[in-house]
Simulated assay, not measured.
Amino acid sequence: MTAVFPFSAIVGQTEMKQALILAAIDPAIGGVLAFGDRGAGKSTAVRALAALLPPIMAVAHCPYNCAPGACALGCGRADVAVETPTPVVDLPLGATEDRVVGALDLERALTKGEKAFEPGLLARAHRGFLYIDEVNLLEDHLVDLLLDVAASGENVVEREGLSVRHPARFVLVGSGNPEEGELRPQLLDRFGLSVEVSTPRELKERIEVVRRRDAFERDRVAFLSDWAEAEAELRARIVAARGRLGGVEAGDAALEKAARLCIALGADGLRGELTMLRAARALAAFEGDKSVTDAHLREVAPAALRHRLRRDPLDEAGSTVRVARAVDEILAA
C-alpha cells in the first residue's frame, strides 16, 4: 500500500480537518464538501483520513463490506467475520455508469453462460467514504445516480436481465475549485458540512507546510514513524467519540437555538437544524462533553449552514459572514 501523508501532520486547515473527523464519528451528518484553492491540501486530507480510520468488521468475501449478520445478498461467508480497512473509494470524473453502479459480469457470462452481477464503486464504498475530486465537474447523469442512492441508501440495478438491490450507505466527500463551476443545488444540499479551504497566508505556516511535505517526500518511513504516536492518539479519540456519541444530550435549548439560526438565515428545509444537531453532538463526543452547548453550536454552524443560504441581492456579504452575524446575535455570549 502506498504511504500517505499523516492526517495529524497537516498544517492549518482546521475547519476542513474538523469536518472530516466529525463525519467519521457520525456518518449521519451527511458528508463533507471542501471547496477552495487548488493545491491547498483537500485531496491530501481525504486520503490521510482513509489511513487514519479504524478498521471495520465485515462478512468474509462480501463485496459490499456488510456487517456480520447482515449480508446483503448472502454472497459472503456469513459465519466468518474479518477485520477490513474502512473503505475510502475514489469516484473518477470519467467513470462510466456501469463502473459506478455495477453491471453484468461479462467474463462469467461468456465463459460459463451465467448471469452474475459485478459490483461497482457504490458497492465498494458501503460503510465507508466515497470521494469525488472536482465534484462540481461531475456529469449530470452521475449526479442523478448519487442523489437517488443518497436518498434511499440503496443501489438498484435493473439492466441486461439483472435485478439487483444492495445497500450503499457511505459518507460522501467532495472537493473542488469554485472558479471551475458551481455544484448543482440538489447535490450541494446532500452534503452535511461545507468547508472553505484557502492557501495559507502566514509566512510561518507556509514554511511549515513545505518543510513537512519535503520531509515526507525525502524519507517517508521516518516521517510516518515520527507521526505514528499522534495518529494513534487521534484514532483512539475518534473511536472513543463513537462510543460516547449515543450518550450525548442535546436539550430543547440547543434545538431551539439551532432552529432560530436557520430561520434567521432563511435556510431552506430542515436539513440545517438536523446537521447542526448531529455535528454539535459529534463535536461534544469528540471533546468528551456530555451535552451540546452553545460553544459546540457556534463552532459547527458555519460548516452546517453556509451552503444552505439563498442569495440575498440586498446583502453583498458572503454566506460565511452572514452565518457569523447570525451566530453572534443568537448565540451571544
Rank of each mutant, 00 (worst) to 15 (best):
E249I: 15
P185K: 05
T199R: 12
V195I: 12
T84N: 04
Y131E: 01
G94S: 10
V209A: 07
R260D: 12
G36S: 06
F223G: 08
V171C: 09
F7G: 09
L270P: 05
V32P: 07
V46Q: 12
D98C: 06
V300T: 01
E83F: 05
H296K: 05
L245E: 03
D79E: 14
A333V: 05
L187P: 10
E316Y: 03
E249S: 12
R278I: 00
F129A: 11
V157I: 13
E287T: 02
D252G: 15
G247I: 05
T275Q: 02
F170W: 10
T111F: 13
E107N: 13
A301D: 11
E179K: 03
V32N: 01
T84M: 14
W227P: 01
V143L: 11
V80A: 09
E299W: 05
K290T: 13
L193T: 02
F286D: 14
R127T: 13
A109C: 10
A228E: 12
A81Q: 14
L255G: 05
K42Q: 03
F191I: 06
D148I: 09
G246V: 10
E229H: 15
T86F: 01
G192K: 09
Q18K: 02
V327D: 02
A332C: 04
D98V: 10
A333I: 09
R213T: 08
V143W: 06
E231A: 08
I132F: 03
T293I: 04
T96F: 09
A150I: 14
R47Y: 08
D26W: 09
M276Q: 03
I29H: 11
V82C: 09
R308W: 01
A67M: 13
L138A: 06
A215V: 02
D294T: 07
G76A: 04
R322M: 08
P185T: 00
V46G: 02
G243R: 00
E196D: 01
G192M: 00
V156H: 15
A23H: 00
M16W: 04
E139A: 11
N155Y: 08
S163L: 14
A264Y: 00
A95V: 11
D79H: 06
I21S: 02
L147Q: 01
A58G: 12
V173H: 07
R38F: 04
T293K: 07
N155H: 08
K112Y: 05
Q18S: 09
P6Y: 05
A109H: 15
E208H: 02
A45D: 02
R159Y: 03
